[in-house]
Amino acid sequence: MRITSADVPALERGVALLGSGGGGDTMTAAVLLRRLVTDGPEPEVLPVDALDPAAVVLPVGIVGATAAFTEKLPSGAEFATAVSAIERWTGDRADVLVSIEIGGLNGLMPLVVAGDLGLPCADADLSGRGLPRLDQLSIAATGRGLAPAAIAEPGGQVLVLAAGSDASVERGARAFLASSGGWAAMAFAPVPAGELPSCAVIGSVSAALELGRRVLAAGESPAADRLAEASGGRVLARGRVLEVSRHVGPGSHGSAGFGRGSATLTDHAGGALLRLEMENEYLLALRDGRPVASTPDVITVVDHRTGVPVPCDAIRAGLEVDVLQLAAAPFWTDPRRLPVLRPRAYGIDSDPVLAP
């Protein structure tokens, strides 16, 4: 499958929905991808089962403050530098790239990088949605490990985390970002293509593209049943946001956590109150105090009129929105991996509430 200019709007909408309120603004990444497919080679996305099992697959993505990405644009060398650093460290040359996260801008940027480097992308990713931490990626959840990992920031600094636990890679990356440009390109230890089905979410790029196509085809302000059919999920509420509160969430080892908050809206259908708990992504939905949806399912908020996803950092009182629940990738509902993304993994005292 080749990504063409006609595919970009649908892919952008699909990855924004799968961001679950996080993952970063997709607009800049979509501009870069559109320019690539217009002026250069169209990125190729290959099914995992079509890859040579021995092919070297390199996970890549952007980490850090994605808001800074739109203010401090990439030079184009960051990803190539990170990929080169991993290739030198491991002695393996990349044959294929794979995104670390399909939700948000990381659903688009690896395609731009693949076009620049002349490599194909695998139809897979390491998240299946938007995730806040590196130690939650699928390769960490299966025990494969993140190290070695290379970080290249826009100012030219490069850091290789040669070894260490997944938690230490996460801490090391955040410490590096705090003293650099706020965001950076990362490349992780290569994975043989034959092992991807056991440690990645397969088919996520084509699924995001198809999701975007269906939702865009539904048009603006679709009826609730039409929106549910187009998204393949269910509408939890349609209403006006009444209140948004924000605070710093609990951290670990004495450090502050990610930005936490909640948003409350009134469902026009029956007057019930729906409260969304969020930490970078929407994590839990409560209807009149009762949990009705949670991570690892994707809870996404869209503007009622335009259908454009509303990220956690942009939701505000007065917005008319629709709240959707999209089923998690089967990878995350496996009992062995569910603990990584269940609400209690974020410090929220609730059992998972998944789509029927």
Rank of each mutant, 00 (worst) to 15 (best):
S5E: 14
S5K: 09
D7A: 14
D7K: 08
V8E: 01
A10C: 05
A10I: 03
E12M: 14
G14L: 07
V15A: 05
S20H: 12
G22K: 04
D25H: 11
T26P: 10
M27K: 10
R35G: 12
L36N: 04
P41E: 13
P41R: 15
E42H: 11
P43I: 13
E44L: 15
P47Q: 07
D49A: 14
D49H: 12
A54R: 10
P59C: 00
P59V: 09
V63N: 08
V63K: 01
G64L: 10
G64Y: 11
K72W: 07
A80S: 14
S84E: 13
I86Y: 08
R88S: 15
R93V: 15
A94N: 03
D95N: 12
E101I: 02
I102N: 02
N106Q: 02
G107R: 07
P110W: 10
A114R: 04
C121S: 14
A122M: 05
A122W: 06
D123P: 11
D125I: 05
S127W: 05
R129P: 01
P132F: 14
R133A: 15
Q136R: 11
T142F: 03
G143H: 11
G143C: 08
L146D: 09
A147D: 04
A147M: 08
P148H: 10
A152R: 00
P154D: 03
G156P: 05
A162D: 14
A163M: 02
G164A: 08
D166N: 13
A167W: 05
S168Q: 14
S168I: 02
F176C: 04
F176L: 13
L177H: 08
S180F: 00
G182H: 09
A184T: 01
A184R: 06
A187W: 09
A187Q: 05
F188K: 00
A193E: 08
A193R: 07
P197A: 12
G203V: 12
A207S: 15
A207P: 03
G212H: 08
R213V: 05
A223K: 09
A224Q: 11
E229H: 07
R234Y: 04
R238A: 15
E243I: 01
H247R: 13
G251C: 05
G254F: 04
G254Y: 10
A256F: 14
G257F: 08
G259N: 10
G259I: 00
R260K: 09
A263G: 12
T264G: 01
L265C: 11
A269P: 06
L273M: 13
L274H: 08
L276H: 03
E279D: 09
Y282L: 07
L284V: 15
L286D: 12
D288Q: 08
P291M: 13
A293V: 01
V298P: 07
V302E: 05
V302S: 07
D303Q: 04
D303M: 10
H304M: 01
V310P: 03
A314I: 01
R316Y: 02
P352R: 03
V353D: 10
